[in-house]
Amino acid sequence: MEETAYVSVEVPPLPYFLECGRTAYEPGEQHPARSGFAVFDLLVVDEGVLYMGEEGRHWNVERGQSLLLLPGRHHYPVKPCDVRTSFYWIHFDAPGAYVEIRNGNIAWEDPRRAHKPGWHDWFAPRALRLSKSGPVPLPEETFRALKELYDASAQGRYVSFWNDQRRFHDLLRLLELGRPPETGANVWRVAERIEAYIKRHYAEDVTNGTLAEALHFHPNYLLRCMKETFGCTPLAYLQRYRIEQAKLLLATTDLRIAEVAERVGYAYAPYFTNNFKRETGETPIRFRSRFRERGRV
């Protein structure tokens, strides 16, 4: 089975652009090896084939394909280019922690990020998902954006700074996985309607049946839309959204645990406590205590 891999970056804050360039190799030349490079390195090939490795994994990056190399990893050429090869490279950093997901499992985790039991890639306030390797989506638009960013790099940094960041974020939007493709736009729109409904009604009794009735779709279709767009079921999204709202109340109010539970949609406080612990690894009382201890430091 073909491996599916992507890098999920927690945002906000958004990744920020550092520099970019375009490099060409003649046959026999190759990309330099390096270790400890402290930022992301996005390579997008527009001619030939680039043979690259990272920590024992190898890729043949062909025309119209990209490879995202991670900070701090060992990057090296697998072999010299056998035809003329040119590619754009972009260095950027991301203050938000990141993970690499392979076939649905966490394969590499940012050392800055403490593991949370039950964490899922979409569970951050927002998760920017970028393909580890493979064809770039919308090639014509992507290469146009790359050229604009590269051409602008010839200007002075002070003059181009804000425009560079805007162009870079436009490029990330093109490269992001999970954005609405032309063939799946309706699935995406329905999933967003489910998400909006849950955020408005999370404190109420939300079920697959109430969602189907409110949105006028069969429950199985709603399930498919959420799985394809967010990687989870509607009720799993509801559960995690309720827990996030509970965290906010625990951190900012003195409400009793039972009151917090009721405000986020749980009629039975022990059930809320069990779900909270399963999602976060700690009880609501411990979460509140730890949060306030941290605030006094």
Rank of each mutant, 00 (worst) to 15 (best):
E2Q: 13
S8K: 04
V11Y: 06
P12Q: 08
L18Q: 02
R22C: 11
Q30E: 05
P32V: 00
F37N: 02
F37C: 06
F40W: 07
V45F: 06
D46S: 03
E55F: 02
H58D: 11
V61F: 02
L67E: 12
L68Q: 02
L70W: 04
G72E: 07
H75R: 00
H75N: 07
K79L: 03
K79Q: 06
V83P: 07
G96W: 02
G104A: 07
I106M: 09
G118Y: 02
R126A: 11
L130Q: 03
L130M: 04
S133T: 03
G134I: 03
E140S: 14
T142H: 03
L146R: 00
E148M: 11
A152P: 05
G156Y: 06
R157T: 07
V159C: 07
F168Q: 03
A196D: 14
E204Y: 03
A212H: 08
A214R: 04
P219F: 05
R224N: 14
M226L: 12
K247F: 02
L248Q: 15
A258M: 02
Y268F: 14
Y268C: 08
A269L: 07
Y271S: 15
F272I: 06
T273W: 05
T283M: 06
T283R: 06
F287G: 10
F291H: 11
E293S: 13
G295S: 14
